[in-house]
Amino acid sequence: MLTLTVNGQPHPVAVEPRRILLDVLRRDLGLTGTKEVCEMGNCGACTVLLDDEAVYSCLVLAVECEAQEIETVEGLARGQELTAVQEAFVACDALQCGFCTPGQILSMEGALRRRPDADEAALTEAVTGNLCRCGAYRNIVAAAGRVAATSSGGAG
């Protein structure tokens, strides 16, 4: 038995060692906001935060994550209150089909954990490992700019 801490909640799960974190999140824990697309670390849709760092959950074994903090898209908003990144994605229409969106958002959240005053370029760099096939990139860059404006404004 393994205990995964996801979005602050401990989840005991019984999984064999070969089970991938992404699959355990989606199937065993029902957290389907994290998307499965390529299974090979080639797209970024499965990005989650592992101890505040963005990683591809398709290239992580669930057993590796014992004692680590896992955060998924479901854990970001507080009730109806979106994070600055989520709010910016809505405001800038930085999504179309929405399938890459959770991964894009967590990549930016990860960059903000590293550097709360990350600028537009740093937040854009943070999503270089997230493909968007609908081609919403320019609006994603706009969202990065909006977040940067807010966060540096907040930092004074």
Partner: peptide, 20 residues
């Protein structure tokens, strides 16, 4: 604003592949 955007940024939007 796109109606389903809040659901898509919070992981609440359910796709066929999410069905369990």
């Amino acid at each position: 604003p796109r109606r389903e955007a809040p659901a898509k940024v919070t992981g609440g939007a359910v796709y066929s592949s999410d069905l369990r």
